[in-house]
Simulated scan of single mutants.
Amino acid sequence: MPTVHALPNGTRIHRTDRENFPYGAYHLYCTPGNAEYPEEPYNFCDPYSNPQPQEILQILPHPVWGEYGYPTKKGEGWIGDPRTWELDVGRLSQTLYFYQDPGSPPAERYWSSIDLGTEIYMNENQIAEWTVRDFDITVPEEATRV
């Protein structure tokens, strides 16, 4: 579980807030392997990324993601669901929690590429189907003014 969940309005909910943290929205969170002060409990679960350990976050269909166009109920968006989803990936990415060592300067994150697909663990007899028919990249005007 990430340490914090951020709402679209910027409100941050710590994972110890059992009444308000959306535990069901997250499937997996891996603390980056080079974190100097990870908050307990933590999990360094990405031994395959070299030379830089990755921070990995996997989300599940949940009402908190609906504001960004993502599925909100289990089973939505899977094979047999013919709907088209309009996802605001950039806005969601800006609100997700990312680890930062205490006292370090704020990290600036740039989403300079798109990686679409599903990730499955290396087990026998697993099949994943992922189809992308069309997508548009929308860049807000203020982002083009440099």
Rank of each mutant, 00 (worst) to 15 (best):
I127C: 09
P140H: 07
R133M: 08
A107G: 07
P32F: 01
P47M: 06
H62V: 01
G75V: 06
R83K: 15
R109Q: 03
P41T: 04
L28H: 12
R83M: 10
S93M: 13
G77P: 02
W78Q: 12
W130H: 14
L87Y: 02
A107C: 12
P105D: 08
I13V: 15
Y48E: 13
V64G: 00
Y42K: 00
G77S: 02
E129K: 10
Y29S: 00
P71C: 01
P63M: 04
Y37F: 15
H14I: 11
N43A: 08
G24H: 08
L7F: 09
I79P: 03
F21E: 03
D136I: 08
K74H: 10
R109T: 06
P53T: 05
E55Y: 06
G24A: 11
E55D: 08
I13K: 01
E124P: 07
Y121K: 12
P105G: 05
G24R: 05
E40P: 15
D46K: 07
T118L: 15
L60G: 00
P41M: 07
V64C: 03
Y110I: 14
N43V: 05
F21Y: 15
V132G: 05
P106R: 09
Y37E: 14
P53M: 03
Y97N: 00
P71H: 00
D17S: 09
R109H: 10
P82L: 07
T144H: 07
P38I: 01
